[in-house]
């Protein structure tokens, strides 16, 4: 065994450098699998929108662009605070790290609260797929159901990733407050940051594909 063995170094690694590079690589491979995971949903979106663009535009027209836009801004802002959290960890600034992590958590929660209001509005307007589905525009009718199926599947899967992210954030907050992370060792913060930014990127695609395609829709022709 080598002479100096830092506490943060796991037994299977030779150096902190090797440990850090392994963690980053592992996280990126995990994100690669996430890309393909969401990819299945995007594939379904691509096919069904190509088949019936009008129904998709009509469905999109029913979404609340204001809330969607606010959520976009919130989520991108949370990516900024997350990047600053990693930045603080790199400079061993414990207090700033905790502050930015909390800010990220608050923004993430705000996103989910807004999402909740959006979902309940869809429920009230009978836009949830299933036997109770009823689309206001008669010329489109049930054709819009597949759009809402995908809307709920995609945003739901995204929201689930946010919930998992917030859980992980809370779990990281404790060691962060105890000052466990510093310039030498902050892999968990770095990897969590990668995850959080990935979830942001998914939304960057979901927002235009779901909310924006119906903005200049003026009814079925």
């Amino acid at each position: 065994m080598s002479t100096a063995h830092p506490a943060a170094l796991a037994h299977q690694f030779e150096s902190l450098e090797q440990q850090k590079e392994s963690a980053t690589l592992g996280m990126w491979l995990f994100l690669a699998q996430e890309i393909l995971f969401f990819g299945g949903l995007f594939m379904a979106y691509l096919l069904y929108r190509w088949r019936d663009p009008q129904a998709f535009a009509a469905g999109s027209h029913e979404l609340d662009i204001t809330l969607g836009l606010i959520n976009t801004v919130i989520l991108i802002a949370s990516s900024l605070t997350m990047a600053l959290a990693v930045h603080s960890a790199q400079l061993s600034r414990t207090k700033a790290l905790v502050r930015w992590l909390v800010a990220t958590g608050v923004l993430g929660t705000a996103f989910l609260v807004i999402k909740y209001f959006e979902y309940s509005a869809k429920w009230e307007h009978h836009l949830v797929p299933g036997p109770g589905f009823h689309f206001p525009e008669a010329a489109i009718g049930g054709r819009a159901e597949i759009f809402f199926s995908l809307y709920f599947a995609m945003t739901g899967m995204h929201a689930l990733h946010m919930v998992v992210g917030l859980g992980l954030l809370g779990w990281l907050l404790v060691p962060a407050m105890k000052g466990k992370f510093n310039a030498e060792y902050h892999n968990p913060i770095e990897c969590f940051g990668l995850y959080w930014h990935f979830v942001d990127i998914v939304w960057i695609f979901l927002f235009p594909l779901l909310y924006l395609i119906g903005r200049h829709y003026h009814g079925a022709t």
């Binding site: 699998q33 393909l36 995971f37 990819g39 949903l41 199926s149 899967m157």
Partner: peptide, 21 residues
């Protein structure tokens, strides 16, 4: 594998909640 995973999720959603993809 993740593509199978999401496909099974969609299948389960369809059976359980009528998310009819």
């Amino acid at each position: 594998t993740p593509v199978l995973a999401i496909t099974l999720v969609l299948l389960v959603l369809e059976r359980a909640f009528h998310i009819g993809v």
